[in-house]
């Protein structure tokens, strides 16, 4: 028998170093900036919680936050049920499985900025297939001018891009359900809805939780696509927190307020994830029929 090899721990070291450099140190830098004022040339002034106070009372921040939450909410409301529905409709065996899986995976393989560009062109009234087609049909559609159209375009784009992720996760949960459960349900005379409610949903709950968390975090932090498609417009109609943050940090070079905003942003995501997680897991334990 070989002795236990403790050297394995050294293998983890590079990752630790990497994480330290890529996450912990930048985070600390941000914390540092958020409590100071700077005008460049490496001059810093201690301002305490001033940036935070300013931010939390600023209307601009509130509006951006509301827009972002609305966007995430809408996206989740559409993608989760739609994803479950598609996963349920997918074949469980045979050649159809691989075809469906490949089709589903396709949108996920496209880089974000490309997705943005595709839809930006697709929706254009002058040359885009969608935009031009709609105009030909006499529908007044213009995402650069109309707020509703801009939102619609972004949401449809996100649904097109990310529903697959929900589908794949749910599908993996569904195929893991033993056949005997369906047999028992048939014998018990269960309706299609009852099968979903009492067998499928409980069994995919865990993957569904992961899907909800991933989709929430991703959509809440969405930047590239709206930046490419609408650039935050028309007006500020699609200026989400992320876009606002970049404008503040890079456009106006207000590092202090931007840092404070990043931290608040980060805390909001953590908080919402925690709330989701607690609700969905406690629902598990409390429900007594």
């Amino acid at each position: 028998m070989k002795p236990l090899n403790n050297k394995a721990w050294f293998m983890v070291l590079p990752v630790l170093v990497l994480v330290a450099f890529s996450a912990i140190i930048p985070l600390m830098t941000v914390v540092n900036y958020s409590v100071q004022d700077t005008f460049g040339n490496n001059e810093f002034f201690w301002v305490g919680t001033e940036w935070f106070q300013e931010l939390l009372t600023s209307e601009r921040f509130h509006n951006a936050l509301q827009r972002t939450l609305l966007f995430s909410g809408l996206v989740l409301l559409i993608e989760i049920p739609l994803g479950i529905f598609i996963a349920l409709a997918m074949p469980k065996r045979g050649i159809g499985v691989s075809i469906c899986l490949v089709l589903m995976a396709l949108p996920l393989l496209i880089p974000w900025n490309v997705v943005g560009t595709i839809w930006q062109v697709f929706g254009r009234v002058d040359i885009g297939l969608l935009g031009h087609g709609l105009a030909e049909l006499g529908i007044d559609y213009n995402y650069t001018q109309d707020i509703f159209d801009a939102w619609l375009t972004l949401i449809v784009m996100d649904v097109w891009h990310w529903t697959s992720l929900v589908v794949l996760l749910c599908y993996s949960g569904l195929v893991a359900i033993p056949e005997v459960y369906y047999q028992a349900a048939r014998i018990d005379g269960a309706s299609r809805w009852a099968v979903f409610r009492y067998i499928q949903l409980p069994k995919i709950k865990r993957v569904l939780l992961i899907a909800v968390l991933l989709r929430f975090m991703d959509s809440f932090m969405i930047y590239t696509e709206p930046f490419v498609v609408t650039g935050g417009g028309p007006g500020n109609a699609t200026t989400f927190l992320s876009i606002d943050l970049v404008q503040m940090a890079v456009g106006q070079f207000d590092l202090g307020p931007a840092a404070a905003m990043s931290l608040v942003y980060f805390l909001i995501i953590l908080l919402v994830c925690w709330v989701f997680y607690t609700i969905m897991t406690s629902y598990d334990n409390d429900e007594i029929g």
Binding site: P178, V180, Y181, Q183, A184, Y198, I199, P202, K203, E287, I288, G289
Partner: peptide, 11 residues
């Protein structure tokens, strides 16, 4: 069946 089949979320 041979292995128990129960509806987990129900009492």
């Amino acid at each position: 069946f041979q292995f128990p089949v129960v509806y987990d979320t129900l009492s």
